[in-house]
């Protein structure tokens, strides 16, 4: 059994100019003690999925199971979700209450779960700061007194402080400089080994994901188009969109028409796909081309 099971999640947003199929039947699973990456361009529903898992959105249909327990409606299983699933956001400067020091931020996080006094908790918080590579001198700093990298470390400390099982990393490095991003990725890998965490890593950059992921899911406009082990996705990408993304990371892709799939039926990628034929109007079958490697395409 997987740690987190996402079954056929659908979430549509009604907007003045039509329906936005943010999540259109997403099936995913997050394995224990591994990193599952979700890759796709902005607007494809990655963050919506993260927020749905955390219960900020209620899906229109589908189920989310944590260790077999239904957490689709957060209200019924609030404690379970809050204790076990945490999130690190993309923009470190928006992830903190500007009026809280690092200490207050972490204390607030601890206090949400336990009932400890400020004095008792101090040592614990120091430990938590140190574990993400921040010294005690950061304790009484406000967010605006810290750099993006430092804030992102603090964000990780906050997410990990109540010892969750799953951490959702929503593009945690994309607003950072490369050297800082590498350090954050190293830190995440170290913490994963120490605390046996499962990561759900969301990114638009396949190249970045290569370093940290074990499983990779490629998403395009609300649908998963291909998934498998890291080696399979990078070694033998089968879906045209995955290939295109890999090209884009190397800056090889020259032209890419503006997208935004309006079709509900059939392959979401067919407007852009170079191999598009009439058959693509039908919903593509899920094909297992090698163990663990699945592709949603008519031409595999």
């Amino acid at each position: 059994m997987d740690l987190l099971d996402i079954q056929n999640i659908k979430k549509y947003f009604k907007q003045p100019w039509g329906i936005n199929y943010a999540l259109d039947g997403v099936d995913m699973s997050i394995k224990e003690k591994a990193t599952t990456a979700l890759v796709g361009e902005s607007g494809c529903g990655k963050t919506t999925l993260a927020k749905t898992i955390l219960g900020f959105y209620r899906p229109d249909s589908g189920k989310i199971l944590f260790k077999g327990e239904d957490i689709t409606d957060v209200k019924t299983n609030n404690k379970l979700v809050r204790e076990n699933i945490q999130i690190v956001f993309q923009n470190p400067f928006l992830s903190f209450n500007p009026r809280y020091t690092a200490f207050a931020t972490l204390y607030e996080a601890v206090r949400a779960m336990n009932n400890i006094s400020k004095k008792e908790v101090r040592g614990f918080l120091v430990e938590s700061l140190n574990s993400v590579g921040l010294g005690e001198e950061f304790f009484f700093r406000y967010p605006h007194q810290m750099s993006g990298g430092e804030l992102q470390r603090l964000s990780i400390a906050r997410a990990l402080i109540n010892k969750p099982k799953i951490v959702i990393l929503d593009e945690p490095t994309s607003s950072l400089d490369i050297s800082t991003a590498v350090n954050i990725l190293k830190l995440l890998a170290k913490l994963q080994q120490e605390a046996l965490l499962s990561y759900f890593f969301i990114s638009h950059n396949l190249k970045l994901v290569k370093r940290i992921a074990h499983y990779v899911f490629v998403m395009y406009y609300g649908k998963i188009v291909e998934y498998g082990l890291k080696e399979q996705i990078y070694g033998f990408p089968r879906h045209p969109y995955t290939k295109l993304l890999l090209d884009a990371c190397e800056y090889k892709m020259k032209d890419y028409p503006a997208s935004g799939s309006k079709h509900k039926q059939g392959c979401v990628f067919r407007e852009i796909c170079p191999h598009s034929k009439d058959i693509c109007g039908n919903e593509p079958e899920k094909t297992e081309i090698e163990p663990n490697h699945f592709v949603f395409c008519h031409f595999v």
Binding site: K51, N78, A109, A112
Partner: peptide
């Protein structure tokens, strides 16, 4: 995002409003 973070931590609505949003 800090409000979402607070919600993910399981803070009560009352506390989020009074301690994180209104200030």
């Amino acid at each position: 995002e800090f409000v979402f973070a607070a919600r993910a931590l399981g803070l009560t609505h009352f506390r989020i409003i009074t301690r994180h949003i209104l200030p």
